[in-house]
Amino acid sequence: MASFDRHRNRRDNRVDTLSDTAIEGKDPDFDAWLSQQLQFHEPYLDNDGFCEQVMEQLPAPSRRSERRAARFQYGAVVAASAIVAWQFPFDRVWMEALQQSISLYSLVGVGILSSLAAMTGGILAARR
């Protein structure tokens, strides 16, 4: 405080008779310096349960927005599956399967199982 008083006494008269230039604030260096000092000396306030208290008091999210989010996730999974199916060379796999004498039923079974696994994984990932 002593240093402040010392500087203050030296300049008390100048505070009340500010020049136009000072009032207009034509010193960008000072602005940057002051801004830096103000930010540097600001303490960080620990969360200390503040966030948890806020979250406890929030109203529950509406069912409508939950349903909308779920619809969006299912839509994304279906779209992704469609793109994969579009790009997948079914005809070649089919021909190969015939040549290798793989039974049609086991092939369909494997296909369904892998699609289910991919969709479940996609849904779980999207929900997380």
């Binding site: 500087h7 505070v15 010193d27 002051l34």
Partner: peptide, 20 residues
């Protein structure tokens, strides 16, 4: 408000700035 405050602070804190 900002300009007047800045001018006041500039005067009050000038010595610190000079030291820096």
């Amino acid at each position: 408000h900002v300009n007047r405050a800045r001018a006041k602070l500039q005067t009050l804190l000038q010595a610190w700035r000079e030291e820096v």
